[in-house]
Computed example of a mutant assay.
Amino acid sequence: MASGFHEVADRVFVARYPQWDVNVGLVLGRDGAVVVDTRASCLQGFAVLDDIRRLGSDIEVRHVVNTHVHFDHTFGNTAFTAATVHAHANVARAVDADADRIKALFRADPGDGPEAGYTSRDVVEVLATEVRPPDRSFELSATIDLGDRAVTMSWAGRGHTDGDIGVHIPDADAMFLGDLIEESATPSFGGDSWPLDWPDTLTEHLGWLGPTSVVVPGHGKPVDAEFVRRQRDEIAMVDRVIRERQGAGWSLEAALSEPDERLPYDLERLDSAFRRGWEQLTSRPAEPA
């Protein structure tokens, strides 16, 4: 894993950090810079700033964008005191509660170790971080004007969370998709994911992408539109199997235990996906006759 920022499109940079294998983006313009996601603690956010200064001492970070609410993408916000923080309105509504949730989980079980990708020191830093919520939020879309280029933030629906956004730099044909896409692991179906909405959300974002587009996932190497399309289709198959089993009257326990060769990921990795899908389907109002 290379250190520091590397240019992946015209004045669009990515740094990949070992703790939680998370990506941070940097978009340069005539009137300042945008940082996309900020790592998992205040100290890690300051390390991002150090890497930006090594790239160019005159770079002025005026804006931060959080692709979604999770701590490994937002807790570093506090280091960017001179910047305006942008995120979806659902992030603004949930950030404090989600921070309390993750801190409680770490207090109960730090779970550090080489296989986890972080250490006990990283956990201490997470617990010590005072969370900074967004300064500006939006429902569907918003634009940051950097003078000679625009950075567009768009919400296309629920997926990994209910507040995932795409961050698009049209003149560079580049997009950050946060954890809507993962390259270094399978998609993360957590307890706040929306597996039945996720495929359509990715379909909407694909409308921005062409054959030469660069897409930066939340974790892993930059990918192209075809990768996004393949992962969308894989998640759509998870969606399909969930709907089939629930519609056929299976119990959730049976659905979680019966393999299906169509599933693109190991069944044990889909526990939360099935549980969340079941919740969506069983709480949905009946269709009118």
Results as ranks from 00 to 15, higher is better:
113 G>E: 11
129 T>K: 00
117 G>A: 07
131 V>H: 04
86 H>K: 08
110 P>V: 09
105 L>Q: 15
102 I>C: 12
118 Y>W: 09
108 A>G: 15
126 V>T: 06
94 A>C: 06
120 S>Q: 03
93 R>Y: 10
90 N>Q: 12
114 P>Q: 05
108 A>C: 06
116 A>L: 02
97 A>W: 08
106 F>A: 09
100 D>W: 02
96 D>L: 11
117 G>L: 04
104 A>W: 03
91 V>L: 05
120 S>A: 08
101 R>W: 12
122 D>H: 14
122 D>P: 06
107 R>L: 14
90 N>P: 01
119 T>P: 07
108 A>W: 05
87 A>T: 02
96 D>P: 01
108 A>H: 12
86 H>E: 05
104 A>E: 09
121 R>P: 01
110 P>K: 11
122 D>R: 09
98 D>N: 12
120 S>M: 01
120 S>W: 02
117 G>F: 01
111 G>K: 10
101 R>V: 01
120 S>L: 07
88 H>T: 02
116 A>W: 13
120 S>E: 06
101 R>A: 15
104 A>N: 02
131 V>Q: 15
131 V>T: 13
106 F>C: 07
104 A>P: 03
128 A>T: 04
115 E>M: 10
94 A>P: 02
119 T>S: 15
100 D>F: 00
89 A>T: 08
130 E>Q: 14
101 R>P: 04
128 A>N: 02
95 V>M: 11
127 L>W: 02
89 A>V: 13
125 E>M: 09
115 E>D: 13
99 A>I: 02
122 D>E: 07
108 A>T: 12
109 D>L: 14
131 V>Y: 01
119 T>H: 03
91 V>S: 04
126 V>N: 10
